[in-house]
Structures are given as C-alpha cells and as structure tokens.
C-alpha cells in the first residue's frame, strides 16, 4: 500500500491508512495503548522523512501509495495525542463530549 522506501511500515497500513478524521478518531479509541505505542514507536522516527517524501509530489495529484502514506501521517498525528499528551486513548476530562469534523480539505 505504501511507497517502497516505507515498506517496513506495511504492517500498519491496513489499520491506519484511513481517509477521514472520523475513522482515525475511532481507530485511536478502539486501540490499546500498547497498540497505539507500537505504531507510534515504529513510525515517529521516520515522520520527517515521510513528510519530505510526500512533499515531493503535487498536493492535488498524489499517487495512490503517497496518499496512503499521507493518511498514515495523519493517523500518527491522531495517535500522538494519546501517546505524547494524554497517556491514554481518550482525551483527559472530555467526558461524554463529542466534536464532529464535518468538513475538511482533501487529501
């Protein structure tokens, strides 16, 4: 699913190459901290490399594998909130609040 230089991350692609924020949000909350940390630990060291790789293509014409890598980056951003900031999948003190992203640019 991913560009060849990122083949080592293929195991995470089926779970985390998600097109929408709502899916990424659900996936983060469906995961255990062990699962989230495994993804984070594997991908974060290569984040800047992945951003630079995607940045080599025009935003409005990304090949499919690059789109997948970008979605993996978005998922890493989502997971970093749990791993770096809250130490749990759920936002601390968010209670039962829900905030739906209803519109956003793509990709």
């Amino acid at each position: 699913m991913l560009p060849a230089p990122f083949a080592a991350l293929e195991e995470f692609a089926p779970t985390w190459c998600l097109a929408t924020e709502a899916e990424r949000w659900r996936q983060r909350h469906a995961g255990t901290m062990a699962e989230l940390s495994a993804f984070y630990d594997a991908f974060f060291p290569r984040l800047e490399e992945a951003i630079a790789y995607c940045d080599g293509f025009p935003l409005d014409d990304l090949p499919d594998d690059v789109t997948n890598l970008l979605r993996l980056i978005y998922s890493l951003v989502m997971v970093s909130m749990a791993v770096e900031i809250f130490g749990q999948p759920k936002t601390i003190d968010a209670s039962d609040a829900v905030l739906d992203r209803v519109r956003a640019p793509t990709p």
Partner: peptide, 28 residues
C-alpha cells in the same frame, strides 16, 4: 500550497479538537 502545509493544518485541527473537548466535557 504543498503537502507539508496541509499537514500543518491537519495538526492544528487535531490539537484544537482535543482541548475543545475538555471545555465541552467539563461545561456539562
């Protein structure tokens, strides 16, 4: 204008939501 800027916007939107949820959760 490029992927890097789009990612910057995504990060801002993700972080914003986390903290807005704290306000919304508490104010109930």
């Amino acid at each position: 204008r490029n992927v890097r800027e789009r990612i910057e916007h995504e990060v801002a939107a993700v972080v914003f939501k986390e903290f807005a949820l704290q306000d919304a959760g508490m104010l109930g």
